[in-house]
Amino acid sequence: MRVLIAGSSGLLGSALVATLRDSGHDVRRLVRRPARAADEHSWDPPAGRIDDRAFEDVTTVVNLCGSPMGLRWSAARKQMIRDSRIEPTEVLAEAVAEYRIPTLVNASGIGYYGDTGDTVVTETAPRGQGFLAELCEAWEAATAPATEAGSRVVNLRTGLVLSKEGLLGPLKPLFWLGLGGKLGDGKQYMPWISLRDHVSAMRFLIEHETLSGPVNVCNPEPATNAEFTRAMGHVLRRPAPWWAPGFALRAALGEVADEMALISQRAVPAVLEKAGFTFVHTDLEGALAVAL
């Protein structure tokens, strides 16, 4: 297969490029600057411009674009978060439709479901409430031109990816200093997945042409925040006795506290499991040990 990837320089994108090439696939990358390598093609999402040659013989387009969420959301920050996801998706979906590309694999998030408490959530669950839920709905809706043109569209509803370059980076020094602790009551579920399993799942979805629609990319066993905190402490051999009450998190983080730190999402990967995907890291503590 020839795969064209947008967002190839990020954590997931760079790992996916390496994995696909190791598997024998031809990978091309979209870059937001003049192309400098044979596998690069330039594009400008806000202007709606893409090098036409980028789509030659391409069988799958993968879109992993999106700016970091940040720790506080102003109105301007929210708009940046939306624009960095929806604009590239619209441009790529229209190009997929125009060039009749068979498959579009597009990023999305578990945030689609909102706060679901203890309820087990599969891909058939409705959209929840909140900024992230509305964002994910609009993000996925932006792939409509590709779907309407008959392309296979997969929406990656990604959970928390365990990687020292991502989620675990800012947490590790806190735990090393003995400052780790649960957030709120610690009962909220965290839909986690190892970096290796996430990248393997993306390759699986690219290669399995019968799969389409929303796919929860997370581990079959989501952990509560309290369980996650204990596992981090065990792996790093540090106590994690602290507790950040909900009111303190809301004071420090504003809307982000309820949307990301205190939200409970007991999501499971029903589509992947039914399709026969095998997770390498099913134990949280073992996955954290590998990541750290």
Rank of each mutant, 00 (worst) to 15 (best):
V62Q: 01
S9N: 09
L104G: 06
G246M: 01
S212K: 12
P241W: 14
R28G: 14
G254V: 09
Q188I: 04
R100E: 05
D22V: 06
A144T: 10
I86P: 03
Y189F: 15
W192T: 11
G150F: 01
L288Q: 10
A107T: 08
E87D: 03
F279S: 09
E285Q: 14
K78I: 02
E165Y: 07
T59R: 14
T60A: 03
V61M: 08
K182G: 08
P222M: 03
T116I: 03
G13N: 04
V121I: 15
H281T: 07
G24K: 07
R157M: 06
A267R: 03
M190F: 14
D185R: 12
L174N: 05
I263F: 02
G66V: 09
R28P: 10
E134N: 13
V96R: 15
A291S: 14
V215Q: 04
S108Y: 08
L156S: 01
G186V: 07
E90M: 02
K172N: 00
A54K: 09
G13V: 07
P102Q: 01
T19C: 07
F204A: 05
D118L: 13
M232N: 10
G233K: 15
R100Y: 01
I110G: 11
G276K: 11
L168F: 13
W43N: 09
E285P: 13
E207G: 05
A144R: 09
F204R: 07
V215E: 00
I263N: 06
R82P: 00
I263P: 14
D197Q: 10
K187D: 09
R53E: 00
A248L: 15
A223L: 14
N219K: 12
C136E: 06
M232E: 14
A289T: 13
V271T: 13
W176M: 15
V235N: 10
A93L: 11
L11R: 04
D52N: 11
T60E: 02
W73Y: 07
G7K: 03
R53D: 01
F131R: 12
S200Q: 14
A141Y: 08
T103K: 00
A149L: 02
I101W: 01
W139S: 12
L160T: 11
T158Y: 00
A133I: 11
R21G: 02
G254Y: 03
P126D: 03
R238D: 09
L288F: 14
R2K: 13
L71C: 08
E165D: 15
P126Q: 00
K182P: 06
G254H: 04
L272I: 09
E259R: 04
P269T: 08
R266G: 05
P269I: 07
V62E: 02
T116F: 10
E137H: 10
A287Q: 08
P214R: 01
G117D: 05
P191L: 00
G150E: 02
E98F: 09
E134P: 08
D115C: 11
A231S: 15
L135K: 03
A267K: 02
L211C: 09
R32P: 05
L156C: 04
S108K: 11
F55I: 04
A76T: 08
A244G: 02
E98W: 05
G178L: 11
P68Q: 01
L179F: 09
G114H: 00
A252C: 03
Y113T: 12
I193L: 13
R82S: 10
R21K: 11
